[in-house]
Design a binder for these strands. Structure first.
Lengths: 191, 191
DNA sequence: GGGATCATGTAACTTGTTACATGATTGC
DNA sequence: GCAATCATGTAACAAGTTACATGATCCC
């Protein structure tokens, strides 16, 4: 149930239309909770039906006409409630590790190229985050109200750093592996 | 489309019944792709219908009777195809960061306790992974065919290390924050 | 008036979650 | 025979993905 609350947060920061939200989910918010415009419109409809947000008064609300939303008191209360309520971390899923484990059984052909490609993508993302950090949180820009934003950005930087290091290490490991290593049978139990 | 391929991998490692798979998804495989028994039974049905796996011959296949599956040639081929095909990394989503960003708008009340709780959970998971590493990949146990498994485990260790460090840092940051810091308005754009 | 683009949607599908149902086996 | 547990499922729903539809506006 994070998407509606991410939208409430975005709308509290600044009332927006669906498309404006979509654009904000392509950059800052999307760095930790991505969403497509279809999801956003659907969720806006629900939030309005639930009385958490309302469309700012304008002309006839039809297709193709821009429609901006603002958060109502009930919406702010719901967001505060959700934010302070305990939540377990979700089990994480990553297809790359499924593929690696599969390649221990059916062979590693082809996967190495994709690891290299992923490395490039993560290096690019890391650089992007670091540029944002320098621009927005450089020396003398550490206002207290920005600390939380900075903390979130640091998580992004640290995670991309993890990926670049792990992928670099994995590729080194692959060079040492016998060509197209293929093993069968149960691997160590891991727990 | 990772779940069917994770199941094919597991069945190639060792033919199993639905419940046995469920148990394996609770430990080793579940560390990077979790699944409930309902998902697994549904997927087993599809994989069988697609001709990728088959039930090992036994008595009448009814409810309550154990049913084991093995992978057919077509299943192995599909797994090899999927494993070697390029795949983009999925956009990652983490509710904790949504909550942190929300707390910059509606206040940080309550979230600190949950950060502490998450820290404990991640420390516990990290310890578990490290014990597995020592047991299965300790000195003298680095057979080439285990290298891929070790690589995956290292990713888990590194990720949990990231979490414990980041959460520790975040909690320190919270102590420095003015009580129940609450800011309004658009934060820095971050991109 | 026609194409680009801005803007809001619908529909169908896949994947993951939650709650519940039912049969078989084992130990008492 | 009955409770516990092993084992396989169904149903309903929530969330995310992909493809497509349609109206409004701007600029030539």
């Amino acid at each position: 149930m994070s998407l509606p609350h991410a939208i409430l947060t975005a709308l509290l920061e600044k009332p927006s239309s669906g498309l404006e939200l979509t654009r904000r989910f392509d950059r800052s918010i999307g760095y930790f909770w991505s969403a497509t415009h279809q999801q956003i419109y659907r969720e806006l409809g629900k939030l309005e039906a639930d009385g958490y947000i309302r469309a700012l008064p304008s002309e006839a609300p039809t297709r193709g006409r821009k429609k901006s939303y603002e958060v109502l008191a009930a919406g702010r209360e719901e967001l505060a409630r959700w934010t302070s309520a305990p939540q377990d971390p979700r089990p994480w899923r990553d297809a790359l590790f499924v593929r690696l484990r599969a390649s221990a059984v059916v062979g590693t052909t082809g996967i190495e190229d994709d690891l290299r490609r992923h490395l490039t993508l993560h290096q690019r993302q890391l650089r992007e985050y670091e540029e944002i950090e320098e621009r927005d949180f450089g020396p003398g820009k550490d206002a207290p109200q920005d600390r939380l934003q900075h903390l979130i950005l640091r998580a992004g930087i640290d995670l991309e750093t993890f990926w670049t290091q792990w992928l670099t290490n994995a590729l080194t490991e692959f060079e040492r592996l016998p060509d197209d290593a293929e093993s069968t049978g149960e691997p160590p139990a891991h727990g």
